[in-house]
């Protein structure tokens, strides 16, 4: 039950990030137009809603790599990075109807590295903050 809740949570976080991403993407594409009148089709919206949920669930499974306590964090991140990158590139290929081009591939890789670096930058900052908070509390007791 605990795993199902985490799985759904991960999917919902995926929807949160995906919808924010979609919102920025749609607004950016309407740069020269009145953004208040921006519309998207229901089909397009639903596709991204489901895709974002599934990506969130995928990230949950990929994060199981971090349960291997006997692996160092470097090794865990290294493996997690390539699993996620593989899945991301497959997803981008699917979106492009399996049309392959060097520049599209490069763009997808750069996008992924930015997203991954952002996510782990936030994660490590949070971890560093948590440890500092714990050490402060330990000094008090």
């Amino acid at each position: 039950m605990k795993h199902i809740v985490r799985l759904i949570n991960s999917g919902l976080i995926g929807i949160g990030i995906g919808m924010t991403w979609l919102g920025f993407d749609v607004l950016q594409s309407q740069f020269s137009k009145n953004r208040l009148e921006t519309t998207i089709s229901v089909k397009y919206f639903l596709f991204w809603l489901v895709a974002a949920f599934l990506i969130g669930i995928f990230f949950y499974f990929a994060s199981l790599v971090f349960d291997h306590d006997n692996w160092s964090l470097k090794k865990q991140i290294f493996i997690n990075f390539f699993i996620c990158l593989g899945a991301w590139l497959s997803f981008c290929l699917f979106l492009n109807k399996f049309n392959y081009s060097g520049s599209a591939l490069l763009e997808a890789i750069i996008d992924f590295i930015i997203m991954y670096a952002l996510a782990y930058g936030i994660y490590f900052y949070h971890l560093w903050h948590e440890i500092r908070q714990i050490n402060k509390k330990l000094k008090e007791i």
Binding site: F66, L73, K74, I77, L127, W128, E130, I131, L138, K139
Partner: peptide, 30 residues
């Protein structure tokens, strides 16, 4: 008996006990 926690170079977290013992703690146990 925990003295403090340390993030070590490989990204893992060590617990330093008050008698100098060092033990790794899993991130999900934090």
């Amino acid at each position: 008996f925990i003295d403090h926690l340390e993030i070590i170079s490989n990204g893992n977290i060590d617990v330093l006990m008050k008698n100098g013992l060092r033990v790794q703690i899993a991130r999900r146990k934090i």
